[in-house]
Amino acid sequence: MKKHLLVLSTSLLFSVSSLSVMANTVKEAPLVSISSHDSYFDNLRQHCGKAYAGKVTVDNPASGGFEGQLIMHVRKCTDQQLQIPFHVGDDHSRTWIITKTGSGLSLKHDHRLKDGNYDQSTMYGGHTVDGGFESMQSFPADQYSKELFAKLGNPQSNSNIWQMYIYPETFTYRLIREGREFRVDFDLTKPIDLPATPWGYKD
C-alpha cells in the first residue's frame, strides 16, 4: 500500500512539475493588428511626449464649454496604448485613450473629477469597424457607451461617431451624429510647453 502511495505521489509531483515547466515556457500571444491600424497608431505615437495647441473649428449647434486654451498632450505611449489628455483651460478632466484590442482600435474618453475620481460620464467611446486609413480612424459608439448615454438621459448620443485624423501638420478630433458636428484642430508644427498632469493621473 505504501509503495502504491509512493508511486502515486511521485507521479503527481512529476505531473505538477511538468505543468509548471510548460506554463513557464508559454509565450505571450502576439499583438495582432492590421497595417492601416498599425500605421495610424505609429503616426500618433511619433508625437509622444509633446503637446500642441488647438482651436474649435466646427461647433454646430454651438455647445459652449470649450473656452480657454485647448491643448492635446500625447502623454504616455506603449506598444498597445496611447494616452492623450485634452486640456480645456484649467479643466484637466479629459483623457483620450486609444488601445489596440486585437480586433481593431478602441477609443475611450476617461473623464475625471478634480479630486481624481471618475465622473459619472466616463469611459464612453467606440471601436473601429473597418480598416480605416493610416491618417484617419472612425470609432462608432460601442454598446457600453449606448447604455451609459441612455442611463444618463442622453440617448441622442447613441449614434455618435468619433473620428481622429493625423496628418504631418494637423491632428483633428471630430464628433459627428445626426444634427451635430464638433471639431477641434491642433497645430502639430509648433510644440508647446507641457500642460499640467490630468486629473486622476500621476507623473
Rank of each mutant, 00 (worst) to 15 (best):
L6P: 03
K50I: 01
A51H: 02
V58I: 09
S33F: 00
L12W: 10
S36A: 12
Y40R: 09
I34F: 14
S18V: 12
T25L: 15
H37P: 05
S39D: 07
M22Q: 13
G49R: 07
V58S: 03
I34K: 10
R45M: 09
L5A: 13
S20V: 05
A51M: 01
S35D: 05
T10A: 15
K55M: 04
H37Q: 11
K50L: 13
T10K: 13
Y52F: 14
L6R: 10
G49T: 02
L6E: 13
I34M: 08
V7W: 15
A53R: 12
V32Y: 13
V32G: 00
Q46S: 14
V32N: 10
L31G: 00
L31A: 02
N60S: 15
S36I: 06
D42F: 07
K50M: 07
H47N: 14
V58G: 00
V32D: 06
L8K: 12
Q46A: 08
C48W: 05
N43R: 12
S17F: 12
A51L: 01
C48N: 11
V16Y: 11
P30Y: 01
D59K: 02
S35W: 07
A53Y: 07
S36C: 07
C48H: 10
I34P: 01
K3I: 04
F14C: 14
Y40V: 05
D42T: 13
N43S: 11
